[in-house]
Design a protein around this nucleic acid. Structure first.
Lengths: 127, 127
DNA sequence: ATTATTGCAAAAGTTTTGCATGCCG
DNA sequence: CGGCATGCAAAACTTTTGCAATAAT
């Protein structure tokens, strides 16, 4: 049974009101402005909880700590290999990817995520 | 200037002779059978080196530690949400994904990786 | 009253790094 | 010889967890 928690609500609100893709620690620092007593452990616990419930996305980029995204509409991510920042990419292939990929695979595919890597505009200019 | 190292060669060979997607520690344990004095730090350093040089792939799954892949031909990965194992998926969309995605994006996209999530055959049966 | 959730702090786990030594070119 | 690479161990970082206290139903 799931009980309401002010901390969880703040974390979800925080993620839904920003367009970057913060780390757990960034969420922690930001939420602490409203909830000064919240602990980092609680942030981690709720981020896991919300991600498992599909209310947020967890993004593992391979560059630094995991990132989180409060927007769960269908989209993909670009990851800058230079600065590690994550940006939204609204392009979605027109093919029915999961369906086609399932033909090749002996198990149950539920989700597909595309990650694009390269250099963001800012890092291109700073070279 | 890059110098030859027996350790690096062993690590690369090890990855190219297995079809799983081992963690750094798994590579370490395996390579240590031939190179008993190799250290975990050296394994990490060389895995990073090889991945940056495009000789191997680094895979961040979001479930446990990073995985590595000695096969760099174009393919994608399936990640079992139950056991965390990584498997190859040879399906490649027919669209020119990167080209199309670049239209939406203000930076330079170099690579695209697709990760499929779900349950592998083994985990489906064990329920 | 019951139990999910929290705060705190310690622990676990992964990856990086400093430094003296060894090995390749 | 000069400098990259290694082994070792410590450190840095990220994330998880145990437990007593707090808060929601």
């Amino acid at each position: 049974m799931i009980k309401y928690s002010r901390q969880r609500e703040c974390i979800l609100n925080n993620l839904q009101n920003r367009r970057d893709h913060p780390t757990a620690d960034m969420v922690y620092k930001s939420v602490r402005l409203e909830q000064p007593n919240i602990s980092l452990g609680t942030v981690y616990r709720n981020l896991s909880f919300l991600a498992e419930n599909g209310q947020i996305l967890k993004i593992s980029t391979g560059i630094g700590p995991d990132r989180f995204d409060g927007f769960t509409n269908l989209h993909n991510h670009f990851i800058c290999k230079s600065c590690g920042n994550v940006m939204d990419l609204d392009y979605i292939p027109s093919e029915t990817i999961i369906e086609k990929a399932s033909n090749d695979f002996d198990g149950e595919i539920e989700e597909c995520e595309m990650q694009f890597f390269g250099k963001c505009r800012k890092c291109l200019l700073n070279n």
